[in-house]
Computed example of a mutant assay.
Amino acid sequence: MTRSNKNRRKVRWGRLFGALLLIGIIIVGLFHIFQYIEGTIKAVNQPLKKVERKQTFQGEKNKLDAINVLLLGSDSRGEKQARTDSIMVAHYDPQTHKIKLISLMRDMLVSVPEHGQQKLNAAYSFGGPELLRETIKENFGLDIQYYASVDFKGFEKAVDLLVPNGIEVDVPYEMSHGIGMTLEKGKQQLHGKELLGYVRFRHDRLSDFGRIQRQQEVISKLTDEAVTLHSVVKLPKLLGLINKYIDTNIDGSTLLTIGKDILMKKSRDIETIRIPEDGSFQNKRDEVLGDVLEVDFDQNIEALNNFIEAKSSVQNEAQKE
């Protein structure tokens, strides 16, 4: 056999191998897409987890308007009156595709219906998401249509599923007290359990203020991870975690509408605010409740309304044109 024939045979085998490899990639890709579609359809057709309560969540829903979702991090530990470590409201506008995140300080002194002056997170202990919704409405005038209470174990599992290699954070100092672990100072990759400790830590000079900053940081980074291709194929498993670890009244179609905007990067950037804002509260010591934040409600209601109604500079310029 001549050298030229050998070369042609090598070329043909090389082309054949390349073609088989390409076909294999396509088949694997189609298989994952099929799994994604099939799993998503099954997840949407199944009702999301609902926990029977003495009270139902009474937020009025209108699919044409912007919606507010009460986001809660719950540490039940088997207790009947669960605590909530984090209280946030996610504001989503289907017209602008914008997502805004409102963090509410749990130690704010507020009026809780039928319970008088209490810390904000006490409303959840007394009456679950519904009483907390009523409390936020009464004190800040904010309507909330949906809620999602995330069990801490669910947070850990969701992080490990979405970002198996962890998320890089810059730990400002050693964190250990009250989180069941020790996080060393410096940049490092944190996985689900460690990341939960990072967002829960509050025993420093910033207390809850620092914790809220870390919560907003982690949510922003998780959102960035959610738009990647490898996370899209995990959507059915993520919906499965929702059914197991999240108590919510959000219907599947609403969840997918918001998720679609995130995946298409329409809602990539999340704007954040903390209530109470700087200069609008005083630290007080209550004989019964302990340390509380005495809030200027008028100032914070105005700040909250301005934050929700504000449009981005890009949108303002587009409207001018």
Rank of each mutant, 00 (worst) to 15 (best):
Val288Asp: 03
Val292Ile: 15
Ala303Val: 09
Gly39Lys: 03
His115Pro: 09
Leu142Gly: 05
Arg53His: 00
Ser253Ala: 14
Ser103Val: 02
Ala122Gly: 09
Val288Cys: 01
Ser280Trp: 13
Lys320Arg: 11
Val199Met: 04
Ser4Thr: 07
Arg3Thr: 10
Pro113Glu: 14
Glu38Ile: 12
Asp107Val: 12
His115Phe: 10
Asp75Tyr: 01
Gly116Asn: 14
Met108Asn: 07
Leu70Tyr: 01
Leu101Met: 07
Leu263Cys: 03
Gly141Ala: 08
Arg83Ala: 05
Tyr173Trp: 14
Phe201Trp: 07
Asp143Ser: 08
Gly210Ile: 07
Lys54Cys: 00
His32Cys: 07
Lys100Thr: 10
Val44Asp: 05
Asp247Ser: 08
Gln189Lys: 11
Gln213Tyr: 11
Glu114Cys: 06
Phe126Trp: 13
Pro113Arg: 13
Asn305Asp: 15
Gly39Met: 01
Asp269His: 15
Leu131Trp: 13
Asp143His: 09
Thr2Met: 01
Asp291Lys: 09
Asp208Tyr: 03
Leu64Met: 08
Tyr198Ile: 05
Arg274Glu: 06
His32Glu: 14
Ile301Asn: 03
Ile27Gly: 06
Phe140Ser: 02
Ser220Ala: 02
Lys61Tyr: 15
Phe34Ile: 03
Gly14Tyr: 09
Ile144Thr: 03
Ile33Gly: 08
Leu131Met: 14
Ala318Ile: 12
Leu229Gln: 10
Asp261Leu: 06
Lys265Asp: 08
Lys54Tyr: 03
Val288Lys: 13
Ala123Leu: 11
Val218Met: 01
Ile308Leu: 13
Gly259Asn: 07
Ser220Tyr: 12
Arg133Val: 05
Leu72His: 00
Ser76Asn: 02
Asp85Cys: 04
Glu52Ala: 11
Leu195Glu: 04
Gly166Phe: 10
Leu289Thr: 08
Ser176Cys: 12
Phe297Pro: 07
Gln46Pro: 06
Asp107Ile: 14
Gly197His: 05
Asp204Asn: 13
Pro164Met: 00
Glu130Leu: 11
Lys284Leu: 06
Arg8Gly: 00
Leu21Asn: 07
Ile258Arg: 05
Lys187Ala: 04
Glu321Gly: 13
Glu174Thr: 14
Glu277Gln: 15
Asp269Arg: 12
Gly178Arg: 14
Tyr146Trp: 07
Ser103His: 02
His97Leu: 11
Leu64Asp: 14
Gly59Gln: 10
